[in-house]
Simulated scan of single mutants.
Amino acid sequence: MWLRIHALLIKEFLNLVKDKKSRFVLIVPPMVQLFVFGYAATFDLNQVPIAIYNQDAGIASRDLIARFNGAPAFREVLRIGHQAQIAEALDSKQVLLVLHIDRHFSRDLLSGRQPAMVQILLDGRDSNTAQIALGYAQSVLSDFNMNWARERHIPLAPATLQTRAWFNPNLESRWFIVPGIVGLMTLVVTMIVTALSVAREREQGTFDQLLVTPFTPTEILIGKAIPGLIIGVLEATFGIVMALFWFQVPLLGSLAALYLGIVLYVFSVIGVGLMISSMSVTQQQGLLGGFLVIVPAVILSGYATPIANMPEFVQTLTLINPLRYFLVIIRGVFLQGLDSAALFDQYWPLLIIGVLSLGCAGWLFRRRLY
């Protein structure tokens, strides 16, 4: 049996190497995803374009403006001279934020009057970006207040807030995004390779040749699954190496725990891919079927938006999504240092999904075979 499966494995790998489309799927998409998303997809804001409307000529307003201009998050692109320019700057998306300093700002601060008025106007069309920019602006204002009080020996508030971010001390969004990209690119490559495997045989006319060989349906299915498993693990390994040495994401946990999750994750994706391939007559159908699964899987995985923020019925749908569990595994190992015992509740759903989907793929394969 294993000698026959070994021969089928060699045939599958030769098909992948010789087929230009398969070589493209194996090499180009992972590279593009890793570099484009690794650098372009970020929750950090740098060089946010801002406008300043300063009605005060005092020293305090100049100090505050200097702090905004010195902050790496902001870049002044416009100095506003009158009120009407504010709406125009925000409407045209020329700026994301407008800092409006009241004409009595310095006088009120020097005299101890409260409050000294500063207004921040934000473009709220992208609410997430606006909230991040507001947080940066509030941080600059807080530093200004602390420094002003310290230099003039004004009593500070009795309680001050000190924050510390666990697992990501510098709040680098790349540390969160890049491990997720490893799961995403492994999903895409493994799904496409397996979704095309049986469909390729049918389209090229070699499927009938398999029927007259001594292979049983189970052996053919295993021969189709193992190449996808090897390729998926290799793709994940490539992503992990890039995350560690190129993007400098720390790996705090166990490699054994991570690779156990990778094998289970790829196993579950293979089952889904072979289900699609068993139902497909042409490679185009297999490709479209693969992407019909990939897009919802990414959206419902928690990669970009937290699952807890989704409606309850949508949260229930995510339970059948392998990527959901793998993102917890890889981010937990990379950033939290979790081991296999802590991740057991993520492992067993992947195993169940893999067994059920591969069993369903085997049933479909036999049904289409005879």
Rank of each mutant, 00 (worst) to 15 (best):
M191N: 02
M310S: 09
L210C: 02
Q138L: 10
E151T: 11
W175N: 12
A308Q: 12
G354H: 07
Q336M: 09
N168M: 11
Y136I: 15
G180S: 05
I177G: 01
E203P: 06
G112D: 05
E76W: 00
F74E: 06
P49K: 06
R368S: 14
Y370L: 09
N321T: 09
M275A: 13
R4L: 15
F24H: 01
V188M: 11
S268C: 14
S280R: 07
I101Y: 14
G183N: 06
G337S: 08
L134C: 01
Y347A: 08
I262Q: 00
L234Y: 07
M191Y: 00
Y347W: 09
V28K: 01
L122F: 11
V193T: 08
A361S: 12
E201Q: 15
I276G: 01
L187N: 05
Q138W: 00
E172H: 07
T237N: 02
V193P: 00
P158Y: 08
A116D: 04
F334S: 13
Q85N: 02
I181S: 02
A341L: 07
P72F: 12
Q284G: 13
P322I: 11
T305F: 14
P217F: 13
I262W: 02
V48Q: 02
T190V: 07
N147E: 12
L323W: 03
F215N: 10
Y370G: 14
L244F: 11
P227D: 06
A57K: 12
V188Q: 07
R366I: 11
I120N: 01
G112R: 01
I240C: 11
R75G: 01
G81V: 00
T206H: 05
I101N: 11
A149W: 00
I132G: 02
D56A: 05
T316N: 04
P322H: 06
T42I: 06
W363T: 13
M275I: 14
A89M: 08
Y39Q: 02
V95Y: 04
I192R: 01
S280M: 03
P349K: 02
F215M: 13
L343K: 10
G273Y: 04
G81Q: 14
V295M: 12
I330A: 03
T190S: 10
Q315F: 09
T160M: 12
Y265M: 05
V269I: 15
P72W: 08
Q85G: 12
